[in-house]
Amino acid sequence: MKRRILLGLALVFVIIQFIPVELPPPDPDRSGDLIGTGLANQEVAQLFKTSCYSCHSNETEYPWYSHVAPSSWLVARDVREGRDELNFSTWLKYDTTRMIRKLDDIASEVGEGNMPMPIYTLMHPSAKLTDEQRELIVAWTETAMDALVGEEEVEEN
């Protein structure tokens, strides 16, 4: 009886491997990246790279389990939704108002501890942010937002 259940599970596992899943492809183009703009200082840029860029940029590095169902489905969805919500690789495509909005969203998501997602830091412990690192990011967003407001006012005049 036990053997039959195990055999059944193994069979299901093999079958689900054939369900197509599309991992959003990495893209080496860095021309529109936030980190090239000088808005983020090196410390913040480094935090973003280690804690956010896997999902919120086109530089996704896919671990082995992202090629195996069912975890591949979860990874594909999270990366797709992550890029859709905020993509640091195409930062320059946002207009100034949208950049300010994204910074404000970063402040609340990171400040309130919603991001990085717990399931992500479970698999990537090095992506965990300490309270100090969170504060650093939130403080930076405020400076960066003010800088962008200043830029826009210059453009208007």
């Binding site: 909005r101 003010d146 407001v149």
Partner: peptide, 10 residues
């Protein structure tokens, strides 16, 4: 202003 712009964008 920055916060207000973010809210307006939303």
């Amino acid at each position: 202003k920055a916060k207000r712009m973010a809210a307006m964008d939303e």
